[in-house]
């Protein structure tokens, strides 16, 4: 069978990052870790769309500032969001003088971008790339669901789109102070879940997430317990339990170290987010806010991280099409782990 894991010759280093969030995200368990917060969710802009674009701009500015890099040093920017035609990414990042790639992978955009950036960094001309993703609760509500002030009840399986943006700088060269290295890539295959209920996206993404992780375990012979954590993007409570059932059915039993960004980002007993968080900003901020600092200081040595996406639009749902899911996986290792053989 065709191999799905790609081992990059040059393991890109995650040099730095910055995250931006809104009010609910600040109140969540990872609220303290955000670099920038605006509790009005407005970011000094008149429309929600402009606010989301501003979040992308701020996150990349801050990531460059924190790492001491200049925008002109960027060889490529891979960015995506949930607004039609990736509008938040383009309007947010148009002021950066760097080659721009707009990408769409729904909520899996973060790792889709990381895989593409890692591949680009294998070319001799590329040494520094940025991956930027964002979502805003109000732009997503407007586009996919009902008007923001509309009074309705949400189903228990529904998820809350995160107002958040994350920017990551990836370098082909090992540099001091890096947070993690990307040592393996597994691009996801879109899998039609058969689920037509757009308020149960966790269930729509769970099969694709399981497919990606199972492909990794099968091909590499490793097990979940070989990692500090295996992390999914935004399956939420509902999707996570279905995901673990899939692993169980396929012989990967007793997984105790699975975490889901959507289940972590909010305090679900207080925040009224039902099954958890979702959106590009969910995995897009949680990777930085929770996992990268732990990898840098060696408290975690290896994790598997797969952002998950539900691939649909408002028209496809109204036309009764089922929702395909996708999960792109990266293996992240602490810069301390295996330093001798790879970094010399």
């Amino acid at each position: 069978m065709k191999k799905r894991i790609l081992i990059p010759e040059v393991s890109p280093a995650i040099l730095g990052f910055a995250t931006v969030g809104g009010k609910r995200e600040k109140e969540g368990p990872l609220g303290e870790a955000f670099d920038l917060i605006d509790t009005s969710d407005r970011f000094c802009k008149k429309t929600w769309e402009k606010a989301e674009a501003e979040m992308q701009r701020l996150s990349l500015c801050k990531a460059l500032e924190k790492t001491g890099k200049k925008a002109t040093e960027l060889d490529a920017v891979f960015a995506g969001d949930l607004i039609n035609q990736c509008a938040a990414s383009i309007f947010g990042l148009v002021s950066f003088p760097a080659p721009f790639f707009g990408i769409f992978g729904a909520c899996s955009t973060l790792t889709e971008g990381m895989i593409l950036a890692s591949l680009a960094l294998q070319s001799p001309g590329f040494s520094l790339a940025a991956v930027v993703t964002s979502s805003h609760n109000c732009t997503a509500e407007r586009q996919f669901r009902s008007p923001i002030e509309y009074g309705g009840q949400r189903s228990p399986t529904s998820q809350w789109t995160v107002t958040g943006a994350g920017a990551y700088l990836l370098s082909a060269r090992p540099e001091a102070g890096a947070f993690a290295r990307i040592t393996a890539l597994l691009p996801g295959i879109a899998l039609d879940s058969g689920v037509t209920d757009s308020s149960n996206m966790g269930a729509a993404m769970a099969p694709a997430a399981a497919d990606t992780f199972l492909a990794y375990f099968e091909e590499n012979g490793e097990r979940p317990e070989d990692f500090d954590r295996i992390v999914t993007g935004d399956l939420g409570e509902e999707g996570s339990s279905l995901f673990l059932e899939f692993l169980e059915q396929n012989g990967v039993r007793n997984v105790k170290n699975h975490e889901d960004c959507g289940a972590l980002i909010y305090d679900r007993t207080r925040a009224d987010v039902h099954s958890g968080g979702s959106g590009c900003g969910c995995a897009g901020t949680t990777l930085a806010n929770r996992y990268l600092p732990l990898l840098q200081n060696g408290k975690m040595r290896r994790i598997l991280f797969a952002a998950t996406g539900a691939l649909m639009n408002a028209a496809s749902v109204q036309q009764g099409l089922s929702i395909p899911g996708i999960a792109h996986l990266v293996r992240l290792e602490s810069p301390a782990a295996g330093k001798e053989e790879v970094w010399s």
Binding site: P156, S193, G194, N200, E238, S322
Partner: peptide
């Protein structure tokens, strides 16, 4: 991974927490 979407659609609906 073996996956049958029609069975899964039914199962996911059954699995979902009700209002």
């Amino acid at each position: 991974m073996k996956f049958e979407k029609n069975n899964y659609k039914r199962y996911a609906k059954q699995h979902a927490r009700r209002s």
